[in-house]
């Protein structure tokens, strides 16, 4: 296991004192109440919590999808809290790969085109013309990694749930992100398929050292991560390496 904490390395991404409130019907809903969290390079970090505990919000804030009301995001030692909308969009495109519970593929596009989407967003028309071949090769390679070589031309609705999630994973990896942010990646899949997808994700971590943050309410899935953060009511309850407990839990 690639436990970065154990090696004492500086964290790749850090959230410090993150606070996020939502205004719902005149009332302020405190979703994050000062969360400190760090992600080290090469680790699989699981954020475990019941629904409504703020784990998706934490993921969005860490992934520059949402802005924290307070606190700072530090990436590779630099504070990235007050980036503008366009810069945050650029960071999402370059640094982050998102995998969602409901796959969120674009229905009008083929599987391969979906995978290419982040690259298309990255390049303007001229640059795209130059990069097209390289990006296509990369997408095909990723389709092969997720085991969907033969389904490149299929539309999302022609794919099963597990296949769609594999396409989503391939898409998240297209721009070689520093992080893979997975929001309940197996939440919508049945047992065997969920296990296949988990196997795929963990394989990526092992073979390519892909750093991952996985949000889940599934303790079994979380138990297989390098490190688990329990999020209760917008606060970190426990933060520990799974190495020790893992064996016990598996027993």
């Amino acid at each position: 296991m690639n436990s970065a904490n154990a090696s004492g390395q500086a964290p790749l991404l850090e959230g410090r004192g993150l606070v996020k409130n939502y205004k719902v019907g005149g009332q302020t809903l405190e979703v994050l109440r000062g969360v400190d969290i760090a992600v080290a390079e090469g680790e699989i970090l699981a954020i475990l919590g019941t629904s409504g505990c703020g784990k998706s919000t934490l993921l969005h804030v860490l992934g520059w999808l949402d802005k924290p009301d307070q606190g700072s995001i530090v990436f590779r030692g630099r504070d990235h809290s007050d980036l503008g909308a366009a810069e945050r969009a650029h960071m999402r495109n370059q640094i982050m790969g998102f995998v969602f519970q409901f796959y969120h593929l674009l229905p009008e596009l083929s599987a391969l085109e979906n995978v290419l989407m982040p690259a298309m967003i990255q390049h303007g028309p001229l640059a795209w013309h130059r990069q097209k071949k390289a990006e296509r090769d990369r997408a095909r390679e990723l389709m092969a990694i997720v085991g969907l070589t033969t389904r490149a031309k299929h539309r999302p609705r022609q794919l099963s749930g597990g296949e769609r999630q594999r396409v989503a994973i391939a898409r998240a990896l297209q721009n070689r992100p520093s992080f893979l942010f997975c929001d309940e990646p197996t939440g919508n899949l049945d047992g065997q398929t969920a296990e296949d997808v988990r196997h795929l994700l963990w394989g990526l971590n092992e073979e390519h050292g892909q750093t991952m943050v996985i949000v889940t309410h599934d303790a079994k899935l979380a138990a297989q991560a390098d490190r688990v953060v329990h999020l209760v009511d917008g606060r970190i309850a426990t933060d520990h390496d799974v190495d020790l407990v893992e064996e016990v839990a598996l027993d």
Binding site: A86, H104, L106, M117, I121
Partner: peptide, 16 residues
């Protein structure tokens, strides 16, 4: 609407 959210998550700016 959902597609707009998706391309946003993938890095499309509002201008995009």
């Amino acid at each position: 609407t959902r597609d707009i959210g998706i391309v946003g998550a993938l890095g499309a700016s509002r201008m995009g």
